[in-house]
Computed example of a mutant assay.
Amino acid sequence: MLVVSTGDLMMFGISAVALIVLAYVIQKTRLGRALRAVSFDRDTAQLMGIDSTRIIQLAFVISGILAGIAGVFLGIKYTLYPTLGSLVVKGFIASVIGGLGSLTGAVIGALLLGILETLLLAALGSGYSTIAVFAVMLVFLLIRPQGIAGSNVQEKA
């Protein structure tokens, strides 16, 4: 039997809307085009007339807004305690599995990590499931370091 609380559904809905808005901004607006250009090659973007410093600042503002939304959800769902920051590690693992630099990959990685962790919690218990999740991340780093939907990225000087 599947039990989902109203609060969880509300958080899912708001997260889905935020994700759709983010995807729209990145793919369909001038700001998104500028963000992609600066992330690909900052110098060339500046030559094309893009104020890369301003775009980088806007990227930090957008990430701060999304982090604020996530923080509110954590405050609603969990009791706040000092080690709550360990959930950030799960976000990192999801981005490694999905592929850094890919919004679609991040969503796929998060869903796979959630399903995997739920199955491992039921099978192994809470102590071993964390170890198994880290092992899966290491396997991904060894076999496919760019993640599921990521691409090979060059190191920029």
Rank of each mutant, 00 (worst) to 15 (best):
L74M: 13
L2M: 03
A110N: 04
E155D: 15
A45M: 08
L66C: 14
I76P: 04
S151I: 08
I62H: 06
L87C: 04
L66A: 08
L113I: 02
S86M: 09
Q154F: 14
L113W: 04
G147C: 07
Y128L: 14
S39M: 14
L112K: 01
L31D: 05
G147N: 03
A123H: 05
M11T: 15
V88C: 01
N152K: 13
V72K: 02
A37I: 05
G7E: 12
Q57H: 15
S5Q: 12
G64V: 07
G101N: 03
D43M: 02
I56W: 05
Q146F: 11
L113P: 01
L121F: 12
A23L: 11
L2Y: 02
V136W: 01
G91C: 06
L47P: 02
I148C: 04
N152R: 13
T118H: 11
S129V: 03
V4W: 13
S86K: 02
R36V: 11
F40H: 09
A16I: 14
L120E: 03
T83H: 09
I20G: 00
I76F: 13
Q46M: 11
T130R: 15
G101L: 00
I50A: 03
Y78E: 06
L112N: 08
S63Y: 01
I50P: 13
I97H: 06
L80I: 14
F40E: 08
T104V: 12
P82M: 12
T53Y: 12
A34Y: 08
L87Q: 09
I69C: 06
A106M: 02
L112S: 09
L47D: 02
L119Y: 07
G91E: 04
L66Q: 03
I108P: 05
I143Q: 01
T44K: 07
L124S: 04
L112I: 12
V38W: 08
A94C: 05
L66G: 03
S5P: 09
T79H: 06
I26W: 12
F12T: 11
Y24R: 05
N152I: 13
G99I: 02
K90D: 14
G127L: 09
R36Q: 15
L119S: 08
L2R: 01
G99A: 03
G13V: 05
